[in-house]
Amino acid sequence: MICMTLLMSGIFISFLIKYRKRQIRHKEELVQTEEELLQAHLEVQEQIRRHLATELHDNIGQLLSLTNATLASVDLQQQEKAARKITDAQELVKRSLQQLRQLSRVLHGEQVLEQGLAAAIRQEINWLQRSDYYEITFNSNIPEEMQFSEHNKNLVLFRLLQESISNIVKHAEASAIEINFDYMQDKLQLGISDNGNGFHLPEALSASSGGMGLNNMRKRAALIGGSLQIEAAPGAGTSIRIQVPYIPS
């Protein structure tokens, strides 16, 4: 009887020790995940700062310099040339204002998310449509009232959308963009496709700069429990598909 009691006590103590170890390991994994999410959040913010600095220096700075040079060269004695140069300067100012509005959208991305992820994505689509540069197709089965309250997931997913669109604008030379935003089987699915020049995916992933950007996008999707798949080929456009587990609030 004593042996049986000791045996049962030993089994119980062994179970408690293993259970405690699992608890500690689980807490450590949670802390690590939170730290990785925070790091991803900081990386996104750093990318935004670098993007703002580049846009201000390279684009808006250049446009304003050209505006200044154009106005400085106006000779009122030559009215026809002066009128053309003033018109050119006005166009440069308009382009500068457009660039500033785009930067403002980047800066206010988190504020837009306060309205909900679906509303933020729809607003991003609206801005893209206003440019009149692309034929935009937007499909979604998500109603306006559906809310997703996990802030880290919302922010990372929204930034992935913005980065995908930014890559299209900068590199794809596309004329059409299709965006699909759906909720099925407890997963949010976001797809961004274009009909641009595409690229050779293995080479891009192994390249020092391109690979780093694409792999960082995959890493950020993985940090929020999701996946990011890329399909691309030279002359055949690019398609990005993101899936993230979500429970609506």
Rank of each mutant, 00 (worst) to 15 (best):
A207W: 03
T54H: 13
L201P: 04
Q47S: 13
R241D: 06
M212Q: 11
Q77I: 12
S209C: 07
I240N: 02
D132Q: 15
T238D: 01
R159E: 08
R50D: 07
S166K: 12
L42D: 08
K219C: 02
S149A: 13
A207S: 14
E28M: 04
I17Q: 02
M4E: 15
A89R: 05
M1L: 10
Q123N: 14
M217H: 06
G191D: 08
A69N: 13
V93T: 08
G191M: 09
S175V: 09
I224N: 01
E135S: 11
L160A: 04
I177S: 02
I136H: 12
G198Y: 01
H26K: 15
P248D: 07
R105I: 05
L97T: 10
F15W: 14
V93Q: 01
G226N: 04
E145V: 15
A119V: 09
E110K: 07
Q189K: 14
N59K: 10
I177P: 02
T238R: 01
L161I: 03
G213I: 06
A172D: 09
I17M: 05
R105G: 09
H108M: 06
T238G: 02
S65I: 03
I125A: 04
R20H: 14
S239E: 04
D75V: 05
G213D: 04
L157N: 00
A233N: 09
E173N: 13
S14D: 09
E43F: 00
N139G: 05
S149M: 10
C3T: 11
H57T: 12
A204W: 04
A89H: 04
